[in-house]
Simulated scan of single mutants.
Amino acid sequence: MTELVTTPLTPAMLRGALHIEATADGLLPRRLPPHAIAQAHDDHLALMASQSAGVRLALRGAATVLELDVLATRTVQRGAVAGPAGRYDLLVDGRLVARAAPSGGAVVTVDPVTRAVAYASGTPGTVRFAGLPAREKDIEIWLPQTEATHLRALRADTSVRPAPESGRRVWLHHGSSISHGVQIASPTQTWPAIAAARAGVELINLGLNGNALLDPFTARAIRAAAADLISVKVGINLVNTDLMRRRALTPAVHGFLDTVREGHPDTPLLVVSPIHSPLVEDAPGPTAPDPDAPVPRFRTFGDPADLATGRLSLRVIRDDLSRIVTERAATDPRLYYLDGRDLYGERDFADLPLPDLLHPDAGGHALIGERFARAAFAAGGPFAPC
Rank of each mutant, 00 (worst) to 15 (best):
S103D: 15
L68N: 01
R60F: 13
Y119G: 00
L57I: 08
V65M: 05
K137L: 05
E140P: 07
G86L: 14
R135D: 02
R95T: 13
A85C: 13
V113P: 01
E136T: 13
T114N: 11
G122N: 08
A62E: 08
G83D: 06
D89N: 11
G125L: 06
P102G: 07
A120N: 12
V113T: 13
D111E: 01
G61A: 08
D111A: 00
R135W: 01
V117S: 08
I139E: 02
V92M: 03
R128C: 04
I141K: 12
W142C: 14
T114R: 14
R56N: 11
R95Q: 14
P144N: 07
P124Y: 03
P144L: 06
G131P: 00
E136H: 10
L91N: 06
A101L: 03
I141W: 10
V117E: 06
L91A: 08
A85S: 15
L68T: 01
Y88A: 02
G105S: 02
Y88W: 09
G86R: 12
V81Y: 06
R135S: 08
R99Y: 05
A120C: 05
G83T: 04
D111L: 01
A118H: 14
V76H: 06
T73W: 01
P102H: 09
D111S: 00
A134L: 06
P84A: 11
L71E: 08
R74Q: 15
Q51I: 08
L90W: 11
A116N: 11
R95S: 11
T64H: 12
G54T: 05
T109W: 12
A106H: 06
R60P: 05
V76T: 12
K137W: 00
Q51G: 05
L90V: 12
S103L: 13
P84M: 09
P144H: 10
L71W: 08
Y119V: 03
L59Q: 10
V97P: 05
V65Q: 14
T73H: 00
L71T: 11
L90P: 12
Y88V: 00
V110M: 06
R128N: 02
F129R: 11
L59K: 10
V92S: 04
G122D: 05
V127D: 04
T114C: 12
G94V: 07
L96P: 04
R135T: 04
S50L: 03
V110H: 03
G125S: 02
E136P: 01
R74A: 15
P102S: 12
T73D: 03
S50E: 14
L57R: 11
E67Y: 09
T64F: 11
G94D: 07
P112F: 02
G83L: 03
R115I: 00
G83C: 04
P133A: 07
T75S: 10
R78W: 12
T146S: 15
G94R: 10
A63I: 03
T114Y: 09
P124I: 02
G94P: 09
A80R: 15
L68K: 03
